[in-house]
């Protein structure tokens, strides 16, 4: 079981507090949605949780021990990372890119071996990208590319997966596909954290939401608690709220709030 937790986390850049005393924990069995307006510090929080950026106060703990105690390879074995925009610099084949995920558990030299091959095949199947395996990643659509990068994370087998804006810029079908895969991998041993802008998807797929504003956590809990009109008004400055249509959650933003000056 892998538990990732932040304790009073502070990150300062150029005199600005990007994260200002954040405490939260992430573990198995949960798909946590990290929501909040642009510039609220969601990506910074994710990178701090992965140990990709230095923190100026507080600490991140992995299974109870400070993240700084771990070697990069030990973190990689436990926490996977889906970067925003699914970057890929060379036109490598989908299969090869997914195989890079095996680096995370030190399996790369056995990539040709049965375990590695099986992990790659499972990851391609789980994301429905098997038919793309010989295509160059750079020729794929944004949605296909995101699915392939998720497959890369799945092949690594880390129990925790942190995904930065996995559905931004994707068409509706791919958004649903991606959210489905992220939810399906959540289990008694595995958890997912996803930065999201689409509040309807956040309400429908996540069982836990963290609403961030100005580097702090404004509210957290189940979607119906977090997506209250009062919270949306205070953080996003919109009039809106959670509704149900045919029994399904929909978050409607009715109108911008009047500027209270």
């Amino acid at each position: 079981m892998t538990i990732l937790s932040a304790h009073d986390l502070v990150v300062t850049r150029n005199g600005r507090r990007l994260l200002d005393g954040i405490s939260a924990d992430f573990g198995p069995g949960r798909l946590t949605g990290l929501i909040g307006p642009n510039g609220a510090g969601k990506t910074t929080f994710l990178k701090a949780l992965l140990g990709l950026i230095p923190v100026d106060g507080g600490e991140v703990r992995l299974d109870g021990l400070p993240l700084t105690n771990y070697r990069p390879s030990d973190i990689a074995r436990r926490v996977g990372y889906l970067a925003q925009g699914a970057p890929c610099h060379w036109p490598m084949s989908v299969e090869r890119i997914v195989a890079l995920g095996l680096l995370a558990n030190g399996q790369d030299r056995r990539a040709e071996a049965a375990a590695g091959k099986q992990a790659i095949a499972d990851a391609l199947a789980a994301t429905g990208t098997n038919h793309l395996r010989h295509r160059a990643v750079t020729t794929l659509s944004g949605g296909e590319r995101t699915l392939v990068m998720i497959a890369r994370c799945l092949a690594g087998g880390a129990p925790m997966l942190l995904a930065d804006e996995p559905v931004t810029g994707l068409d509706p079908r791919h958004q649903l596909d991606v959210m489905d895969i992220l939810r399906r991998r959540v289990s008694e041993t595995a958890g997912t954290v996803a930065v999201l802008h689409d509040l309807t998807l956040a309400a429908r797929y996540c069982n836990h939401l963290i609403l961030m504003a100005d580097g702090r956590i404004f509210a957290q809990g189940t979607p119906d608690v977090v997506l209250k009109p009062g919270n949306l008004a205070a953080v996003y400055r919109i009039k809106g709220g959670l509704h149900f249509v045919d029994g399904r959650q929909i978050v409607v933003s009715h109108s911008p709030e009047e500027n209270r000056t």
């Binding site: 060379w90 890119i97 680096l103």
Partner: peptide, 20 residues
Amino acid sequence: GRGLDALTLGEDVARSLGIG
């Protein structure tokens, strides 16, 4: 070689894969 392969996915992802 291993590190340069991982770097295909950008510096942050390479680090998240355990590359120093």
